[in-house]
Design a protein around this nucleic acid. Sequence first.
DNA 1: TACGCGTGGCG
DNA 2: TCGCCAAGCGT
Length: 297
Amino acid sequence: MPSGRVPLALLHERVNAWYATEGRAHLPWRHPDCPPWGVFLSEVMSQQTPLARVEPIWHEWMERWPTPAALAAAAPGEAVRAWGRLGYPRRALRLHEAATAMVERHDGQVPRTPEELLALPGVGAYTAAAVSCFAFGLPEVVVDTNVRRVLARTLEGKAFPHLTLNRAEARLAAASMPADRDTANTWNVAVMELGALVCVARGPRCGDCPVADLCAWNLDGRPAYDGPPRRGQAWHGTDRQVRGELLRRLRDSVTPLPVQALEGSGDDPLQVMRCLDSLVADGLVEPLPRRRYRLPA
DNA sequence: TACGCGTGGCG
DNA sequence: TCGCCAAGCGT
């Protein structure tokens, strides 16, 4: 439960002022001339992915596919190939599908409202709100992992939020929004940035924080996290690893690969074939006659 | 609601 | 070293 003791107006003022001087204004999708399509791309690419890895891929995509129509005209497999090692490659496929939907339903434009954005593949509550706000200036409630952590600490005095975003937390985020539209738009990006640069998960830099003297967690002596265990993500020997290796081989080949060239993608042959089937089912891989495979044309 | 989904860097 | 974490989404 929020303490109700943190003065929100002061919180907004401090965080927004901090962002004006310390925020990464050089990020290309934050440039005033960046089109909504560039913002849209950056948001999908940034899902569960550090920005440092996103930036070079973003530049390549914007040069190659500067509009939704340009991407929609390409083969989906080319989007998967250009995705490189960004991770979660289904996002590349969904971007291609979203671009197609923009051409068919939105006159080739990125839609403006959260409702329209939510209807696009690969767009959830966070991305819809972020694009509405950052590309079009609508004061939506933008809640990502950074915002959740900052609010958990400053308002609730906890080291980390719950494992999953629940209704009470969404209410808290909405209630913590500035009433003024311009202030709200800056707040959305500024509080995210504070979580990304200062109020980080491990080793928070409270000495550099503009609201350390208001933060319930800091004022309470930064008590350790005492909630349920935060489950890690298995990797070695998992389907994820095998799928990643299969896709890496297919990305690196200009021509279709025979199944023999893919068999060594894991230690368990049955697992490799199961993963290959799952990639086909996901639309990330296209099967050809004579047991050959390629990225979808 | 809980889980599966890539990849790589950092403490 | 190795587990944790990163501008989440779909089922």
